[in-house]
Computed example of a mutant assay.
Amino acid sequence: MNLQQLEYFKKIAETKNFTTAAALASVSQPALSKSISKLEEELNVPLFERNGRNVNLTSFGQAFLAHADLALKEIEKGIKELEDMLQTDKGIISVASTYCIGTYFMPFIISDFLSFYPDARFQFNHGSTVEILNDLKAGKIALGFYDNAVDNFDSLLQNPEIESVLVKKEEYVLIVPKNHALSTETTASLKDLKNEAFIVLKEGNTDKMVSYSEFIGYTPKISVQPNEASMLSGLVAAGAGITIVPNTPLINTNTVSIVKIKEDLGYKSIYMGCLKNAYISPAAIKFKEHIISSIKN
């Protein structure tokens, strides 16, 4: 049995036709038929049965296809790994983050990395924390970025298959319009905000910031519930209300004022995750090391 036989077998299973499979494999039909006959002799079972001009897999063929497909995929992964080894600084780095992190955090760290390794390429997706962890386990991405602003995060963080590294902590701050009474204050207490109208992300949003009733101690008046975190600052600037957000470089202090909160709301913590003991490209390893190095500095 050899790799070529497995490739021929898969093409026939996909096309259900020896002539079409031979054309796709760039081989003569007699040579293809002979190769499959030898494979069937070695396995001592029939893999295909005639159905007019086409062929169908036998029950033996169906059982064998799953293993042949897995073997071919493993070979492809091996070839890709060797290619990556020859192009240490030019590999593709597949990453995913939550929508909020992808808006204000990822652009900066990717841009910084590319200033050192301009030939690196990124495949970048958004998703929820749960989706990112599932994609890591499935090997769809090399690195995932997520935060603790999600229910049951502590249990998610204990996943034995995923290594999660804390890469950034952001304090929560209050942002208010420039003409607000608190705009000239450096700090404010949550208990003094009972009469304020709050802008709060819509229920069920994966980028939720903070549980207002839990920390404020009362149910606030809500004026607007946008679907995206990127809309919060703009709504505050327009005078629609005030809100509590992580203190990030993207807050435009020309249009809103940042006020520190006297109470301890904890932090929004951003984590970088990868699948333990899994192969990732040298370029992805460099990116991971670059981020860890920036934390220490």
Rank of each mutant, 00 (worst) to 15 (best):
L133W: 01
L133P: 02
D135F: 04
L136C: 11
K137F: 01
K140S: 06
K140D: 06
A142G: 11
A142R: 03
A142W: 09
G144M: 03
F145Q: 09
D147C: 10
D147W: 00
A149W: 00
A149R: 10
D151H: 13
N152H: 15
F153G: 07
F153Q: 03
F153W: 11
D154T: 10
S155H: 13
L156D: 07
L156R: 07
L156M: 12
L156K: 06
L157N: 14
Q158D: 10
Q158L: 13
N159V: 13
E161C: 09
E161L: 15
S164W: 00
V165I: 07
V165Q: 15
V165R: 14
L166P: 08
L166W: 05
V167G: 02
K168N: 14
K168G: 09
E171T: 08
Y172A: 12
Y172M: 11
Y172P: 12
Y172N: 08
V173P: 08
I175C: 01
I175V: 10
I175T: 06
I175H: 08
I175L: 02
V176C: 01
H180N: 15
H180I: 04
L182R: 02
L182A: 01
T184P: 05
E185D: 15
T186M: 09
T186C: 09
T187F: 04
T187D: 15
T187A: 06
T187W: 09
T187R: 06
A188N: 01
A188I: 04
S189H: 08
S189K: 13
L190H: 01
L190E: 03
K191T: 11
K191Y: 12
K191W: 14
D192C: 03
D192V: 01
L193A: 00
N195Y: 13
E196S: 12
A197F: 05
A197H: 10
F198S: 07
F198N: 12
F198V: 13
I199E: 06
I199R: 02
V200Y: 07
V200P: 02
L201Y: 02
K202M: 05
K202Q: 15
K202E: 14
K202W: 08
T206P: 13
D207M: 05
D207R: 03
K208C: 11
K208F: 14
M209P: 04
M209E: 11
V210N: 02
S211V: 08
S211D: 10
S211K: 15
S213M: 07
S213E: 13
S213D: 13
E214V: 04
E214R: 11
E214K: 15
F215Y: 15
I216Y: 10
I216G: 12
G217H: 02
G217I: 00
Y218T: 07
T219Y: 10
T219V: 08
T219N: 10
P220S: 04
P220N: 00
P220E: 00
K221P: 01
I222A: 04
S223I: 09
V224G: 07
P226K: 04
P226C: 02
P226H: 05
E228C: 09
S230F: 02
S230V: 11
S230P: 05
S230W: 00
M231E: 14
M231K: 14
S233L: 11
G234T: 04
V236M: 01
A237M: 05
